[in-house]
Each structure stands twice: as C-alpha cells, then as structure tokens.
C-alpha cells in the first residue's frame, strides 16, 4: 500500500468514526428527551411535590429544561467539546466524576472476563475440533449450548443460591466487604461469581465458532498435502490450520467486546456490583439524562471502535474481503 493511500484509508476510517459518534449522540439525546417522567424528581427528590408552580418554573429554567430540544442539544454539544458533560442530577456531581469512580470496577470485571473468554474459547475450540465427533466433543457441545442459552440473570441467581446462600463460600453482592476496600483477597472473592458467570455465558459462543472454523479449515486440500508430505497431525493443526483461523478469531474477539460488556451490565445489576452497568440502569430509571447520555456515548464509542478494529484487522490480513461487512462474514448473529 502506498503511503498516500494509507493516509486516505485511515482518514476515511476516522471520519466514519467521528460521524457515527456524532449521530449516535444526537439520536440518544432526542430519544431520552422524548421520554416522559420528570427530570426534576431526580434532581430535587420528593421535594418536587411541595414546590409551587413558580418554583418549578424557576428550577426548570435553571436546569435549562424550558428551551427546545434542539437548543438543549446544541448547548450540550458546546459544553461537551470543552470537556464539560454536565452534572448528574441524581448524584449532584460532575458526571465524569460519577462514572470515573465506577468505571474501574467494570473494566476489572469485563477485562478479566474478556481475557478468560479469549484464552479458553481458543483452547476449548481447538480441543473440540481435535476430538471431532468424539463422545467428549459431543458432550461439550451439548453442555456449551445449554450454558450459552440460559439467561445470564438466572444463572447468576442459581449460582448465588448454591454458593452464597446454601454453601456460604462466596459473597453474593458488592465489589468488596465494608471496610476492606484495599484487601486483595476480598476483592477476588467478590469477583469469582460475576466473572465466572460472564465467562460461562459467552465462552461457548466463541469456542463453537473456533471449532467450526477449524473444522472447515481441516477439510482444505493443503491439509491433505501436508499430511502426505509426512507432517504430524499436531504440526498441521498448530502450524497451519490454527494460523489460518487466527485472523477471523481476532476480529471476532474485537466484535465480542461490546457483547461481553452488555453481559457485565446485567451481571452487575444482579450482584449490585458498583460498576457502570448498575449506573446505566439507575440513570435510565431516574431520568438522569446527562449521566445516561455519557454512558450511551461511551458504550457506543467502544462498539464503533471495536467494529473498526475488526474491519482493519480483516482488511490488512486479507484484502479480498474489503467489500464485505465483518459481522456478516463471521455470521455474528446476536448480541
């Protein structure tokens, strides 16, 4: 690729990214303003009911709720460009601070889950493909389908029932016990169940994909040649087949980030884990617009970035598929 072409290529990608984020913010802004429910309640709490109409009018004016939605959006955009995303109406502090205090927990949970899924789905997929149609492979396939189609919240409930309520081995909620914020062992104990559930729920979806990709690969003609040439099964599998599967695996894992993130949101809510998932849920319930805006945009940015990464990985490795959408090629079907 020539230098100029590469410049144009990345320039286009960045432009797509910026435009997507811009449109996303507009859509979320308008949709959230259309929602009924009184944002004053989330700011003033129960005091709203005791307010006189005059006071309410004054409060609305102060929060800028009387202008048209477009004016509000432009104002929001203007502030956002200067790094000011407004204050959370429920927590009465800067949204960035509210999210900043929680995002570490979510990144820890999601990150650990992602790493485990990344490693284990590859191992499991290869192992199953190696023992294709054997009894172990069949059993894993069935168990895997079962774990991946059980709703995440129910799996959480059952595991809490078993490990916390009945056996008392693991804590059932929160990220740490009161007063033990710096205790490493305590943090780990609180992470086992949530991370386990995130991994269990997503692992098979990706492992199955790896398994099927390898099974397709194993049927290619070059494998026959390599075997005829005298290479061992192991060498063909790891030196040739796995290497050919890696590009699609990497781009699949790039797309998987938002899916795993969505999964942590639900797990966080069940475990009342102080992350941005619980925050998103609260902000949607209490009409905390500024907070919800930033959360939606953050998630959106992450998704768009991940999709772009996947596209770039694919296109750099295999220029033939430039025209196709990554998700179509990998048959990604559901969040």
């Amino acid at each position: 690729m020539k230098k100029r072409n590469r410049f144009v290529y990345y320039g286009k990608k960045i432009l797509t990214f910026v435009v997507s984020v811009f449109i996303l913010s507009a859509v979320v802004f308008y949709v959230s303003r259309l929602a009924p429910g009184d944002p004053l309640v989330s700011y003033y709490g129960d005091r709203v009911e005791k307010m006189t109409p005059g006071e309410r009018e004054w409060a609305k004016e102060r929060l800028g709720l009387n202008d048209s939605v477009t004016v509000q959006y432009v104002r929001w955009l203007d502030h956002a460009f200067r790094g000011d995303f407004g204050i959370s109406w429920k927590y009465k502090t800067d949204v960035v601070d509210v999210i900043g205090g929680r995002i570490g927990n979510t990144l820890l949970l999601g990150g650990l889950g992602f790493v485990f899924i990344f490693v284990f789905s590859l191992l499991l997929g290869v192992w199953c493909a190696w023992h294709e149609e054997g009894p172990a492979d069949r059993m894993i396939c069935n168990v895997g389908t079962l774990t991946s189609c059980i709703p995440e919240f129910w799996l959480s409930l059952v595991l809490i029932l078993v490990f916390s309520v009945t056996l008392h081995w693991l804590p059932s909620s929160g990220a740490y016990s009161v007063g033990k914020e710096r205790d490493f062992a305590d943090r780990v104990m609180h992470l086992i169940l949530p991370v386990g559930i995130v991994v269990l729920n997503h692992l098979w979806y990706y492992a199955y994909m790896v398994r099927n990709k390898i099974l397709e690969e194993v049927r290619a003609d070059y494998v026959l040649l390599a075997r005829a040439k005298g290479l061992t099964k192991r060498a063909v599998m790891f030196r040739h087949c796995l290497r050919n599967v890696m590009p699609s695996y990497l781009s699949l894992m790039a797309i998987s980030v938002p899916h795993i993130l969505g999964g942590t949101y639900i797990v966080e809510t069940v475990f009342s884990y102080p992350g941005i998932g619980t925050l998103a849920y609260e902000s949607a319930r209490y009409k905390d617009y500024n907070l919800l805006m930033l959360l939606c945009i953050l998630s959106g940015i992450l998704v768009i970035l991940c999709n772009l990464t996947a596209q770039i990985i694919n296109e750099r490795i295999d220029p033939r598929i430039r025209e196709q959408e990554v998700s179509e090629r990998l048959e990604v079907t559901e969040p």
Binding site: L24, V28, Y265, L292, I304, P335
Partner: peptide, 8 residues
Amino acid sequence: LLSVPGLL
C-alpha cells in the same frame, strides 16, 4: 442502531 447497547 446496533452500537447502542440493546438493553439501554
């Protein structure tokens, strides 16, 4: 539309 988390 796909990039907004479904649940939200």
